[in-house]
């Protein structure tokens, strides 16, 4: 994907994110995710069912990259079972860190395949993943 297409995809997800809500969602697990060094602050609402991620919604304020990353993550993870999701996240994180990773179908998330070149924006991309990992770990317990 060339850089102008990546920009278009990110902007589209930023301006029209998937499953953005303004209020808390009943019956969902809520987890907050924020970055220490910036002002991104999002809440994820996750519905688990039989070890599966049935639905994810989010609320809050964050930069374009964080918002787009959240939207793309939600799009990709809905329907996965939790181990499959953790495996996906693990590989995605390796791609972000410019480490060797198992090729997966990252779909729109490939827009971040060169983010490792901008260290200060990597934390923007990882913001929603911090939250979902915590939620999955809590669910596993």
């Amino acid at each position: 994907m060339d850089s102008s297409t990546k920009r278009e995809v990110i902007l589209e997800h930023y301006q029209n994110p998937v499953n953005r809500v303004t209020d808390d969602v009943e019956g969902y697990v809520k987890v907050n995710s924020n970055n220490e060094s910036c002002i991104d602050n999002i809440n994820l609402f996750i519905k688990f069912n039989d070890n599966k991620i049935e639905d994810i919604k989010f609320s809050g304020e964050a930069c374009a990259i964080s918002t787009a990353s959240t939207s793309i993550m939600i799009q990709n993870l809905i329907g996965m079972d939790i181990d499959e999701a953790l495996d996906y996240i693990n590989n995605f994180t390796k791609m972000l860190n410019d480490e060797e990773y198992e090729a997966k179908d990252f779909k729109d998330a490939v827009v971040f395949d060169e983010t490792y070149k901008q260290a200060n924006r990597r934390t923007c991309v990882t913001l929603p993943y911090k939250g979902i990992i915590k939620a999955i770990e809590d669910y596993k317990k």
């Binding site: 910036c38 991104d40 964050a62 930069c63 374009a64 918002t67 200060n120 924006r121």
Partner: peptide, 11 residues
């Protein structure tokens, strides 16, 4: 526009 995005832009 989220202020932080403007911060990144100016950077």
């Amino acid at each position: 526009i989220f202020p932080q995005d403007v911060g990144y832009y100016l950077n």
